[in-house]
Computed example of a mutant assay.
Amino acid sequence: MPESVAPSQPVTAGRPIVFYDGGCPLCRREIGHYQRLDSAGAVDWRDIHADATPLADWGITWDRAMQRMHAISAEGQIRSGSWAFVLVWRHLPYYRWLGGTLHRLPPIVWLMDRVYNVIARFRWRSRCDSGVCRPGR
């Protein structure tokens, strides 16, 4: 389920923020696809591999962010995993209908999140658990 807003969160300027691992080839490819669709600049894309410092503003540790994709809604709510994808999709052309539909179907997103957890755990173990993907500072 979506995480709540911490009391001292910075404002997101009306657009969601997405934290992603720009050092991961799979992540780069998927986020690159979304960025190409985001010609209106509806999402604030943040590569935490290049600069992990913005995570601290939201109380998200680097390890947590590397294990699951995190996004911040325009209202300041933290989302992770499949909930983060649904948030992103609601702001992108071609995916907007899917994000809007799934947003109203939490049990489906919960099931998607179970699958996402398996993929995310595999990615973490194969790439990050060894310390290979430490972020730039």
Rank of each mutant, 00 (worst) to 15 (best):
I72C: 07
A71E: 04
G99K: 03
S130L: 14
W83F: 04
Y94T: 13
M112L: 15
W97G: 11
A56G: 06
P107N: 12
W83G: 02
R79H: 14
R64T: 11
D113S: 05
F122Q: 14
L105D: 00
D113T: 07
V86I: 09
V86L: 00
S130R: 12
S126N: 14
R96N: 03
H103F: 07
T53M: 09
W110V: 03
W110Q: 08
D47M: 13
W97C: 05
P106M: 09
L87R: 01
S80P: 06
W89E: 00
S73I: 10
V86E: 00
W62Y: 15
D51L: 03
D113R: 05
P93Q: 09
A71V: 02
R64Q: 15
D57S: 13
A74L: 05
L98A: 08
D57T: 08
A74P: 02
W97A: 13
M112Q: 07
N117E: 09
L102K: 00
T61M: 10
H49S: 13
L102T: 00
T61D: 12
P106E: 04
A74F: 05
W62I: 13
S82Q: 02
M112C: 13
G81T: 04
R123K: 11
P107I: 11
W62A: 05
V86M: 00
H91Q: 15
S82I: 01
G59N: 03
H70P: 08
G76S: 09
A56M: 08
R123H: 02
A84N: 03
L92S: 07
R68H: 08
A52H: 07
I48C: 03
D63N: 14
M69T: 11
D51H: 12
A65T: 08
P106Y: 06
W124V: 03
W83I: 01
N117W: 08
A52Y: 01
R90Y: 01
P93S: 05
M69E: 11
E75I: 06
A52F: 06
G59F: 05
D47I: 14
L92F: 03
W83T: 00
A50W: 06
V115P: 11
T61E: 12
L92H: 04
V86F: 00
P54C: 10
R90V: 02
A84R: 00
W58V: 06
H103N: 07
R90P: 07
V109C: 00
T101K: 02
D113P: 09
M66I: 14
S80Y: 14
S130H: 13
E75F: 06
C128H: 15
A84D: 06
M69L: 14
W89P: 01
R125D: 07
G76C: 09
A52D: 09
W124S: 04
M112R: 03
R90T: 01
I78V: 13
G59S: 05
R121Y: 04
P106V: 05
P107M: 09
D113C: 11
P107C: 08
W124T: 04
L98F: 10
L92T: 03
W62G: 06
D129G: 15
I108S: 00
A52I: 06
S73F: 14
P107H: 05
P106G: 10
R114Y: 03
D129M: 15
